[in-house]
């Protein structure tokens, strides 16, 4: 369910790193908690953020959840398809539902994130 090559946050974001570019989205667990997602407020390309900053918002009919950036860096691309099809976040959260790509400024920060295993333990605990 949760790809081994991804890293995760306690706030239910995932990041997949290729080179020094990280692709970020929300986890399958998060999308299930939120229910039908109706809108994603995307960050602007070229904006720079520090790890933990609020960069985007995911809205369902009855909730709005902030997305925190898992690593520091500059936004290099956003998933514009989400503007017309926010449902991709529900349908394919770990794939087509990615939200933005960030150019990492400190790869060391990745070590602080959760592995798939520890993330699965986390959500198991939350569910109980």
């Amino acid at each position: 369910m949760y790809p081994k090559e991804f890293r995760y946050t306690k706030d239910h974001e995932w990041i997949k790193v290729e080179g020094n570019i990280g692709t970020v989205g929300i986890t399958d667990y998060a999308q299930k908690q939120l229910g039908d997602i109706v809108y994603v407020e995307l960050p602007e390309v070229d904006d720079e953020f520090s790890k933990g900053d609020e960069v985007a918002t995911v809205e369902s009919v009855k909730a709005a959840s902030p997305i925190f950036i898992p690593v520091s860096g500059k936004i290099v691309e956003v998933n514009e398809e989400l503007e017309d099809s926010p449902e991709l976040l529900n349908q394919d959260p770990h794939g087509k539902g990615w939200i933005f790509k960030v150019e990492l400024s400190d790869e060391g920060e990745l070590d602080e994130l959760l592995t798939a295993e520890s993330y699965e333990e986390l959500i198991k605990a939350e569910g109980e």
């Binding site: 109706v38 369902s60 009919v61 909730a63 709005a64």
Partner: peptide, 13 residues
């Protein structure tokens, strides 16, 4: 609709 913008959901934001 678009209620997620509003105070009863987004509170201080």
């Amino acid at each position: 609709t678009l209620s997620a913008r509003e105070q009863h959901i987004k509170r201080e934001r």
